[in-house]
Design a protein around this nucleic acid. Structure first.
Ligand code: MN
Ligand code: MN
Ligand code: ZN
Ligand code: ZN
Lengths: 123, 123
DNA sequence: AGTGGAAATGAAAACGGTTGTCACTTTCTC
DNA sequence: GAGAAAGTGACAACCGTTTTCATTTCCACT
């Protein structure tokens, strides 16, 4: 594990939100860390391959990375300010498994994101 | 509705699978249809904004488009062959509304995608 | 310690899907 | 029909990501 990869992992550990490679690169640099953008991409790729981080495609095509949390959960995101709440619920999990099983699908995974306007922003 | 947009919609109607803008452009051209790639993108964008087509980000970052039925629904997608089943379920809808309301969020929307290996592909 | 091969690094260039530009054409409205 | 509004498309720009390749770092084994 090189200095740079360790730095990327540590940076990821600071926040539980999904963040882009470029954002992580910028933070590392502004913290005085000497690292190249290419290396950040490679580190994230390697961590994703090893199952240590989740990768998500945002709507604008940018990839977002997050350290894998042990418990499975979803996100409630404010459209205006971006505030994110981590949520979980048996109901969705069961529904996803059932609907997939009903159609003969195996190895089921799912993505669920809920969007809205948070209390602060609607005030 | 221009000739080109009509052509894009008709092309989408030919198949129920998700297809990329470039693929639709290529099909239209090889069928002798005079249309520009930019226009195909704009037509798909307009159809998506109007809720007539679903947009999906594939893992490689390319956007995929498909005509969709007008009622709210979600997708069950085969990881291997891309086969897609439209599914719906009260359970998810209720869960999304509840979890958002519990955190004071309003104007709730959500995205739900279920992935797995379809029966054909696991055989 | 010393050595050699494998792996990692990073600046720069290339890549590829998508979007912006702008002169031009088509369509709509009166 | 005339003028306004919307749409078109070749081309260039954009931007996140990947490839390249010369250089550096790491590491297993003396
Ligand atoms: Mn879940
Ligand atoms: Mn659909
Ligand atoms: Zn907010
Ligand atoms: Zn399949």
């Amino acid at each position: 594990m090189s200095r740079q990869r360790t730095a990327v992992r540590q940076e990821l550990a600071k926040e539980s939100a999904f963040r882009s490679a470029q954002e992580i690169y910028a933070r590392l640099r502004s913290a005085g860390n000497r690292v190249g953008l290419t290396t950040v991409y490679r580190a994230l790729q390697a961590l994703a391959d090893g199952g240590e981080v989740d990768v998500l495609r945002s709507d604008d095509g940018e990839a977002a990375y997050r350290l894998c949390s042990q418990s499975h959960h979803h996100h409630l995101v404010c459209r205006d300010c971006g505030r994110t709440v981590e949520v979980e619920g048996r109901a969705v999990e069961r529904w996803a498994d059932q609907v997939a099983g009903r159609h003969g699908f195996t190895g089921v995974e799912h993505t669920v994101e809920v969007f809205g306007t948070c209390a602060d922003c609607s005030a």
